[in-house]
Design a binder for these strands. Structure first.
Lengths: 177, 177
DNA sequence: ACCTGAACACCGTTCAAGT
DNA sequence: ACCTGAACACCGTTCAAGT
């Protein structure tokens, strides 16, 4: 089996996507993976260290997935369909949020180490979108619009709300059709 | 001076807009207004009751403000400038989120009474936008897009990010210019 | 190297008790 | 009618102690 560090990250990620950083409990986490909460601190000295590791792994995987797709498919419309599909997965998977989307809302109460990784996630997404969309602030706007669509769909508890909003973005011309 | 119930709501609102529902502490709240945390429960039996009262007051005020503007100004572009300005205020005021925007992220861990008020806030905004924008899902899309712009700007700690995103929405044709 | 029990100061909540 | 102190089971964190 995998090392404990990874086991902790794997259990913590869906929890944060559902309840946020503040809603993550070391005691519940320990109960889930069969370890005492004090033992988690051996692998991640503080909650901030765990949060930062979580966010870093998240943007690394997102970056790899986005680049892998755009490397073999240069069509802007196809790339944007892939991008929205990535954000849709979180909703499909237990009506969860993008990890860094939730952390962005909580940014005010986050340790600096976590904040930095959240900002990097946004950078990764916006940089990738900028290689596909027209210049200026369009990439930033699309990043924000998709985040907002996810948030709205989640609060409705209805994935089809996400689809309808994205379709409306396309119809309006914000996203390439 | 105002009654204690209102004093509590006035102190709790900016706290939730900054730290969320989970980040609201009855003890800190009590310290701020000079009352014991146990006394807050006299006015609001549970944290959920306080959260619901907060969200309800929030959408009531938003509804009143939006209607007051559109009653005397029918121009779609002007109405949308007013709408975005309302969401901008939260950022200007200590880089805070829309109260119900934050609660939407936390929806999973919210008592049902709070959830219902959050949904009503979305309804209020979308219904108002629908009286101004072309039919279909455009109102829902604009609601989501502006929420996302606020979230992105907050995570950046930079109000001008909100302005740039909104301007980009206008340029793309999502919002009437 | 990795885990634990016990303690610390926090949290929302309850309730008997005060005025 | 309104407020409080004390208790309850929670929380992240620390640390001496175990293996």
């Amino acid at each position: 089996m995998a090392d404990m560090r990874e086991t902790i990250l794997n259990a913590a990620q869906p929890a944060v996507q559902a309840h946020g950083y503040g809603g993550l409990s070391f005691r519940e986490l320990g109960k889930e993976i069969g370890i005492k909460s004090a033992s988690i601190h051996y692998h991640f000295p503080t909650k901030g260290d765990l949060g930062a590791a979580l966010a870093r792994r998240y943007w690394e995987e997102a970056q790899a997935a986005l680049n892998a797709f755009s490397d073999t498919n240069a069509d802007p419309a196809a790339c944007l369909r892939f991008y929205t599909a990535v954000f849709r997965v979180a909703l499909e998977n237990g009506n969860r949020m993008c990890l860094c989307g939730f952390l962005a809302a909580e940014i005010d109460g986050l340790p600096e180490v976590v904040r930095a990784e959240v900002k990097t996630f946004v950078d990764v997404c916006v940089r990738w979108l900028a290689t596909i969309l027209p210049g200026g602030d369009r990439a930033l706007a699309v990043y924000a619009a998709i985040s907002g669509a996810q948030l709205a769909a989640r609060s409705r508890g209805d994935v089809t709300v996400f689809d309808r909003i994205v379709e409306s973005y396309r119809a309006a011309g914000l996203i390439p059709a």
